[in-house]
Write a protein that binds this DNA or RNA. Sequence first.
RNA 1: GGCCCCGUAGCUCAGCUGGAUAGAGCAACCGCCUCCUAAGCGGUAGGUCUUGGGUUCGAAUCCCGACGGGGCCGCCA
Length: 583
Amino acid sequence: MKEQLRQAILTALRECYADGRLTSGFVPEEVQLEVPKNAQHGDFATNLAMLLAKPERRAPRAIAETLSRALQDHQLCDKIEIAGPGFINFRLRSACWYEVLDRIMQQGGQYGRCDIGAGTRIQVEFVSANPTGPLHIGHGRGAVVGDAVAAVLAAAGFDVQREYYVNDAGNQVQTLGLSILLRLRELQGRAIDFPADGYQADYIRDLARQYRDENGDPVDLTEAEAIDSCARFGVTKILKWIEADLQAFGIRFDNWYSEKSLYDRSMVEQELAELAEKGLSYRRDQALWLKTTEFGDDKDRVLIKSDGSHTYFASDVAYHMEKFERGFDRVIDVWGADHHGYIPRMKAMLAGLGHPPEALEVLLIQMVNLLRDGKPFTMGKRSGNFITLREVIDEVGSDACRFYFLMRRCDSQLDFDLELAKQQNSDNPVYYVQYAHARVCSINRNAEKDGYAVPEAGAAELDRLVLEEELALAKQLARFPETVAGAALHYEPHRVIFYLQDLAAQFHSYYNRHRVLVDDKKNDRSASVSGECRSYRAGQRVDPVGYVGSGTDVKKPPGLRIPSATRIVVHSRGKPVSAKGRE
RNA sequence: GGCCCCGUAGCUCAGCUGGAUAGAGCAACCGCCUCCUAAGCGGUAGGUCUUGGGUUCGAAUCCCGACGGGGCCGCCA
C-alpha cells in the first residue's frame, strides 16, 4: 500500500517537472512516507515538499500545494491535506485497506514476505559455543537472536544459511579430554590431582562413566592418546546435548562446521601461505604475526604462538575466508559483547585478503543478567556453578523464553528474571500476544459452531468493515511487511515483537468494544457507529446531553453547559462504552 | 590509558536510520464480565528525553565534550 502511494507521488512529481509546475528536477533517493503518530494527520505523510524547498527556492507549503493538486484525483486517496511546515498528509480510501485484507487471506502464512533480499546469499553464524559443556543462558540469547535474524532475513527473500562453528581443535578440547580422563581414573579408585583449570562440573563425571560403559578403560593407550580419545568422546556427546537443547528451543542449524576439519584439509596452512605470500605476516619472538595494523587494527595479532601452536585467530582467518569461497555475499557473526575487541582484527584480515569489510557484519549480544526474584545469579562454566539453558527452557518454556530474549535490542543488557518469565499473568507480555491469538481462534470456533462459513479468500464481504477500529486494524496489518523488511535490513528482530504487541493491543481493544459474531440482519453494524452521551446526577438519569460525536471520538459540543456533579457516560448501541468521570 | 554498549515516566524498555502534542508494559488510583476467553478493556496521574555545546526549517534521534552505569583490552578461548 505504502509502495503504491510512493509510486503515485513520484509520478506526480515527474509530471510537475514535465509541465514546468516545478523546475529544479530534484528527485530524492527515496520518497519518505511515514505513518503519523497522530491519526488525525491521516494514514501517511511525506516531507517531500520540505526537501524540495531548497532546490526549488520556494516555500515548502507552496510546493506542497502544487504536488497535492497533481495528486488530487488519484484513486488511492480519499483526502490530501497540507499541514504544519509543509507535510502532505494522505488519507486513503477504505477500499485500499480491504485490498490489504484480501491479500492477507490469499497469501496466508506467506503474508509479510518480500523479495528485497532476492539473489543475496547470507550466512548467519551463531551460538558456536565451545563443545566443552552445556549451553548456558547467555548462549541462549545469542541463539534466539541469531535464529530470529536468520528468520527475518529469509522472510525478506535472502538466501540464508544457519551455521554453527564447532571449536573442536583448541586447548579447551584437550582440557576437556584430560578432565574426563582424570574422572575416569577416579572411578577406578586411583588418586588424582585435578588441575585448577580443569572442568569441575558434575557432567564430566557423567561423561567419564559413559565412556567407561561404552569403551571400557583406555588401558592400551598412551597418556596423550587417552586424553585424545576422551576429548573426542566428550565433544561428540556434548554436541549431541547442545543440538538437543537447541532443538528444544526451536532452533535447527543447516550446517555444523568443524574447526578441526580446517586443519584436516590444510586450510589453515594454505591461508598462512597466502598471507606470507602477500607479505602480510612476519616472524618476531619466534611467533608468526599478522599485520592487521595496516588495515586499521591498533596492534598486530599473533597467528602462530612461539610454542608452535595456532591461535584461534589463525583458524578464524581460514574459516572466514572459506565462508566467502562458499559463495556467501554477506556473513553475519553473532558474538557475545565481550568479544568486541575481536572485530577490528577480523575486519582488518578481510581487507588484507581483498574482501570489503562490510561483507562481515558482527552482531554483539550484550550480557544477560540472570535473576531469580530480583536476586542475581553468577555464572562460570569452570566453577561448575551455573544454570544451563535447558534448565531455563524447562522451567520457563521455550516460547516465553524466546519472546523475552527478543524483547530488547540486542545491544542493551537484559535482565532475565526466572520467576517473572514463568508467571502466566498480566506481568508477562508473552501471554498478551498469545491471548489475542486465542481470542481470534475462539471467534472462529464459535462462528463455525453457529453455522457461519468462514469465507474463502476474495469472497469475504470486507466492505462491512466500517468501524474506525476495524480500519485501524487493517492498517496495522498492512504495516507487517515493512516491519519484517525493516527488521531484516537492520538485523533487529525485536521490531517484530513490538509490532505484535501493538497489533495485539489493537485487537484486544476492538474485541472489547465490538462484537464480531452478530446477526447482520438484526444488528446493522454501520448504524452502530454513533455514540450517545447520557448524563447522570446523583445516580439518576437526567436529560441526554445529546449526540456529541461518533465512534471513539466523542466530544462535548462547544457551548454546552453541563451542571456540576454530573456523570457523563458515552453509550454505543445502548451499551456504555466509557465513563467520563464527574464534571 | 585505549575501545564497545547503555542513560527516555517510580521500575523495565520502545521510539521505525532528523519530523507535527515523546509512547507501551509493570506499579498507583477510578471504572468495566446477562454478551465471541476479564491471560482482557476504558480512564486518571506520572517527563528538564543525564548534562553542556554544535549542525538546520526542525534534534530523544546526527557530531563533539562532560557525567553516571556495565563490559572488553594476553603469544586465553
